[in-house]
Design a protein around this nucleic acid. Structure first.
Length: 281
DNA sequence: AAGAAGCCCTGATAGC
DNA sequence: TGCTATCAGGGCTTCT
């Protein structure tokens, strides 16, 4: 489900249920998700207040009153739902199997936040005071696509000696953090750049075109509440609607909206790439 | 050492 | 209907 716009949508949905509230109790229904939970995970969260729920790349980051930081990643199929007083409209409207409800946060005020993840590619981590910033995971992440540090100058510099296809480079979270398969395909189409083009040839003019397009696509997707493919839902069960704006993603064989050439699907480093061989050079 | 491929896991769908 | 194969929005690890 989740690339940056979906995670940001989830963050905004969870904020009223979590931000400023104490965690009364955490229920862990298994010992791991993708990775084992940290030592004493539930105990360390008990009675602690969530001061701020932020986001970095595709990670939700809860700043805790204990000084520790709880990070949550949705993987491919992770989702949150909210129940309780004031969140009646948020009832578990999705027909998800409860056997995949893995973590339940019992929040102050009788509100519960449940994490469900069938594939268990998602994970949660708990960093001690001052550890998150120092961790390899966060130190290695590239800039946020909407930040000023993600500029055409930056992208040109980092790509100028790279031989991998631009598609793969944009999926590399160390280069830019938060893009995934959908938004990379869409941004390359809108930029008229072929996904198979060598990264080094993007440096310069093409980067000047590409960077603003990436920012546009991400902004539009956030404004649309993300994209709902198969099962992504917001915390209130509503669907995002950016999927209606896809020009190439999932459009294999359909006519290109610009030139009518059938959209191609190819595989690059093990994932599908959709593009127009005529519009993208 | 960079880049590609394999793998983790479950569920939905297409094809026979 | 039921079986099998393929595919899925991510990211870590292992190969070449």
């Amino acid at each position: 489900m989740p690339e940056l716009p979906e995670v940001e949508t989830v963050r905004r949905g969870l904020s009223p249920a979590m931000e400023g509230r104490a965690i009364e109790r955490v229920e862990l229904r298994r010992a791991d998700l993708r990775f084992p939970f940290a030592d004493r995970f539930a105990e360390r969260l008990k009675g602690v207040r969530i001061e701020r729920l932020g986001r970095r790349a595709k990670f939700l980051m809860a700043q805790l009153s204990s000084g520790e930081v709880l990070t949550m990643h949705l993987g491919m199929t992770g989702r949150f739902s909210i129940e309780g007083k004031g969140f009646e409209a948020f009832a578990h409207s999705v027909s998800n199997n409860v056997i995949h409800d893995h973590v339940v946060f019992h929040m102050e005020g009788g509100v519960t936040v449940t994490f469900n993840d069938p594939r268990r590619f998602g994970f949660m981590e708990l960093y001690g005071v001052g550890e998150a910033e120092k961790s390899k995971r966060f130190a290695e992440l590239g800039p946020e696509p909407l930040s000023n540090s993600f500029s055409s100058a930056y992208l040109s510099e980092i790509l100028k000696n790279k031989s991998s296809p631009i598609k793969s480079a944009l999926l590399d979270q160390r280069i830019v953090a938060g893009l995934g398969n959908i938004y990379v395909c869409e941004a390359l189409f809108r930029s008229g750049i072929s996904p198979v083009r060598k990264s080094s040839t993007i440096a310069g003019k093409r980067a000047e075109k590409l960077v603003p397009v990436i920012k546009d696509v991400i902004r539009e997707a956030i404004d649309a509440g993300g994209s709902s493919i198969s099962d992504f839902a917001q915390t209130d069960g509503k669907l995002g609607y950016f999927q209606h704006s896809f020009l190439v993603y999932g459009q294999e064989g359909k006519a290109c909206k610009i030139c009518d050439t059938p959209i191609m699907r190819i595989s690059q480093s093990g994932r599908s790439t959709f593009y127009c061989t005529n519009c993208q050079k």
